[in-house]
Write a protein that binds this DNA or RNA. Structure first.
Length: 296
DNA sequence: CCTTGAACCTGGGCGC
DNA sequence: TGCGCCCAGGTTCAAG
């Protein structure tokens, strides 16, 4: 589920409920995620106010008033939801609404800036997600974040920057774009979609978009543009809701309805004038969807 | 350095 | 209905 647009959607959904709120209690119902939760999680958060919600690539950053930062990665199946509560006391008022509560692993009890009590609940069936504590000062150099590449939002990702990270890379474009050290935040869906928008084959060697002197080719500029716009469009749509994934407020993103190739094996290419068919292949162990007729 | 593949986990969908 | 198999938005290791 969560590539950059989904994490940004989660951030925007949580922001009104979390910013300025006081953490009144923290419950850890199952501490074994991809990595164990910090042992001092409750101690580090309880009694502090949440100063801001940030994001870097696919990581959500919950910043506290003492410059502590709780960094969360949603893995493949992680999500947050907000529950309004009549009490802020942990336990006792936990309603078993669905079988899914078995995968509610972390619960932040808050008293919002509006004085209302709420629970922020992290649910993750596959437990590929993880959380760690750092500080504003140390965040950039943290092992999980220090090698992240260009953020595909804003202006940073232009043809020159993309050429720089693809220079001399023999790997196929698909693999190069999935590499978080090059561009940070793309996953399987948006790599497939960006390559279709740029009309480039996922099998093409990354270095073929860069001239010998390191300058970007026209195709490189096309790809940089495609990545920026697919990410911007997906954020504007509230991300993609695959399976039953929902935003923090319970609503569904709708970008999945505009997929050109992802999960569309066998269907006709939607590019005007193209009579090709979307094919599914496997690259580095993951499904690639692309049109062999118009992606070269 | 680069690349690929396995591992981590649960659940849904499909064929039989 | 049930079982077994394949597949799924990601990251991190180990091995070639």
């Amino acid at each position: 589920m969560p590539e950059l647009p989904e994490v940004e959607t989660v951030r925007r959904g949580l922001q009104p409920a979390m910013e300025g709120a006081l953490v009144t209690a923290v419950e850890t119902r199952r501490p074994e995620l991809r990595f164990p939760l910090p042992g001092n999680l409750a101690e580090a958060l309880t009694g502090h106010h949440i100063a801001a919600l940030g994001r870097r690539a696919k990581y959500l950053a919950i910043e506290l008033d003492d410059a502590t930062v709780l960094v969360c990665h949603l893995g493949m199946s992680g999500s947050f939801r907000i529950e309004e509560t009549a009490t802020e006391a942990p336990g006792g008022f936990y309603h078993e609404r669905s079988k899914d509560v078995a995968h509610d692993h972390v619960i932040l009890h808050l008293r919002g800036a509006d004085g209302r009590a709420r629970r922020i609940i992290y649910n993750d069936p596959r437990r590929f997600g993880f959380m760690f504590l750092t500080t504003r000062a140390d965040m950039q150099s943290h092992p999980h974040l220090k090698d992240l590449g260009i953020e595909p939002t804003g202006n940073a990702l232009d043809a020159e920057a993309l050429a720089q990270v693809l220079h001399n890379r023999k790997a196929p474009l698909k693999a190069a774009l999935l590499d978080q050290r090059a561009i940070a935040g793309l996953g399987n869906i948006y790599v497939c979609e960006a390559l279709w928008r740029a009309g480039l084959s996922p099998k093409r060697a990354a270095r073929t978009l860069v001239r010998a002197d390191g300058a970007p080719t026209p195709r490189c500029a096309l790809l940089a543009e495609a990545v920026r716009t697919v990410i911007a469009d997906a954020i504007a749509a509230g991300g993609s809701s695959l399976r039953d994934y929902r935003q923090a407020d319970g609503s569904l993103g709708y970008f999945q309805h505009t997929f050109a190739v992802y999960d569309r094996e066998g269907q006709p290419c939607v590019r005007p004038g193209c009579s090709g068919t979307v094919r599914r292949t496997v690259q580095s162990g993951r499904s690639t969807f692309h049109c062999t007729t118009c992606q070269k």
